[in-house]
Structures are given as C-alpha cells and as structure tokens.
Design a protein around this nucleic acid. Sequence first.
DNA 1: CACAGAAAGTTGCCGTCGTCAACCAATCGC
DNA 2: GCGATTGGTTGACGACGGCAACTTTCTGTG
Lengths: 156, 156
Amino acid sequence: MDTETVVASRADALRELETEVGVLIRRIRRVIGERARAVHPDLLPASYLMLSYVRDHGPLRASAMCAVFDIDKGAISRQVQHLIDLGLVDREPDPEDGRATLLSASEDGVRRLEVVADQRRHQLDARLADWPADELHAFAGSLRRYNDALGIPADR
Amino acid sequence: MDTETVVASRADALRELETEVGVLIRRIRRVIGERARAVHPDLLPASYLMLSYVRDHGPLRASAMCAVFDIDKGAISRQVQHLIDLGLVDREPDPEDGRATLLSASEDGVRRLEVVADQRRHQLDARLADWPADELHAFAGSLRRYNDALGIPADR
DNA sequence: CACAGAAAGTTGCCGTCGTCAACCAATCGC
DNA sequence: GCGATTGGTTGACGACGGCAACTTTCTGTG
C-alpha cells in the first residue's frame, strides 16, 4: 500500500468508527435502560451504571465518580440523589472531611444487582452469548484506549 | 482455567464493557459536538453524523436513515429539517414515489465536510494519531459486531 | 489567628436528544 | 374504489448533561 492508500483507509476507518459509535450510543442506551429497569422499575439508566460502580468500588465520594465517569458534578449529584431515594445507595459523611460524603451500595442495592447478574449469567446474555471472554476483554481494552484517546482535549 | 473462572471473567468483561461504554457515550458526544461545530457553527452533533452519512450514501430517503441509525422517524425528521435550514442538505421529491423525498448533501455541505476532513487529515487527528489503520478497522469491526448483537432484542 | 481561595455538593436553568402518539398525504393491494 | 400501509411532520414528554451561582467546609499563607 502506498502512503495515500494508507491515509485514505485511515480516514475510512475513522468515518466508519463514527457511524458505528453513533449507533452504539443509541442502542446501548436502550439496553442499559432495560437492565436498569430489571434492577428496579424506577431506576434510571445513568444511575444504574453508577450503582454498579459504587458497588464494585467501595465507599467513595461523589467527586471521585465525576472523574471516573467524566461527568459534571451536578449530574452526579442528581443521579446519586435518585439512587438514595430508591434506597439502593447509602450516603454517610466522610469522617475525614466534613465537606465530603461517602457512597456505598445498600444491602438492597447489592441484592438487586445480584439477582439481575444471576439472571444474565444463567441465560449468559443471549445477545453476547457467542463472544468468548478473551475477545470481550480485548474489545473492552480497545474501548478504554479509545476513551483515553478521546479524553485528551483536541489541540485546537 | 476452570469453568467458573471463565464465567467470572466473562462477567467481569461485561461489567467492564458497560462502564467503558458509558464513558464512551459522554466523551464521544463532546467530540462529535466539536467536530459538528467545526463544520458549521450551528450544526447540531446528531445532525453532523447524518450529514456525513448522507454525503457518503448518495440520495436516499429519510426512512432509510431510520433503519441505518436505528432511530425514531420523528427524530430523523427534525435533524433533517435542521440540516436543510442550514443549507447543508438538499431535499427533493422522489420521482418514483410521491410520498417520499430524497436527501443529498448540498454543495456547501460537501465543501464544509471536506474542509474539516482536510484539517483532520493534516493533523492526523491528534487524539488517534498512534492508532494504526488496521487496528482502527478491527476496532470498528468489533463495534459493529457489538452493535449487531445489541440490535437483537433481548428474549424476555 | 484571620482571611483568601479551593474543594465538595446542591440546585435551577437550559439545550440536545430520542420516544410515543396523533396526524396528513400518497400509494398499494385486492 | 377503498382499506391498509408507508413516508413524513409535529407536539408533548422524559432523560441527560453542561454551566453557573451558592453554601459549607477545609487549607494554606501571611
């Protein structure tokens, strides 16, 4: 391949990527919506992701999630409030910093997540059933790398 | 690896994927927003993706985009209207079907997309500069496969 | 010790986006 | 021809995130 062909195929790949990601964004929102509803009928999709993260990453403060999810603190605040209203997350003051609060999944939250995880494990998520674990890992790795790349602000 | 480990790592990979995709959703929106504004200061992010698609896939009807983008026809209608208001897309009645209209990128639309593409090509998109073309293709392929998997409705 | 500023959260306002549903017009099938 | 279907538009609504103003609680420097 000469240089021009390489450049052209790069451009193609990037355009392809844009369209695929665009579709992904909308589809994944629906899927996450389903999953959230499975956990709790009133659980909002965005909150579901945070609940899952809070469960896995122990007591943490909301500002930590701002960084992880790369999201505005106002948005976090609302989602967290929603989770607390539903009783899926507990909030307690941080003993080491009077400004901060620590979030952790409530018993009910953990239990509900487990129920859904079991359901999914048993039916092995019909949609992704034929993806081997290592390919899933590789894909997740690519996604993370892509996300990292996107995290770098454009230099213009 | 025994069976349980495989199952566990599958579950891990799926959770990992969820978080990554969640981050992706927000970041990509910002990036696409930047890109849209580079094309035209008033161009909305979602419309930018459609403009790009219309340019590449010739005159087509709005309903075709519903299928491609997996999106409600009402949403398509609004985005298309927006593109027409900005003069980036032309709409003409389909000679073969009085109900339908055919969309194509206007001269201005094509020109503006090219300007931005040139900019990006010359700076080779700083953020993804170190991704070789074949890896981009592989990633796009995984994304499409993932999208296809998500397109299958959950069987519950 | 005091005081400027930074950090943690909360809240209101706003823009983007997509779904749902009602609706109109044109076309297709029988 | 006439009912059903398809292409498209519009309005109402909800989810979501960004921005900015504001409160409270540190933190650091003089």
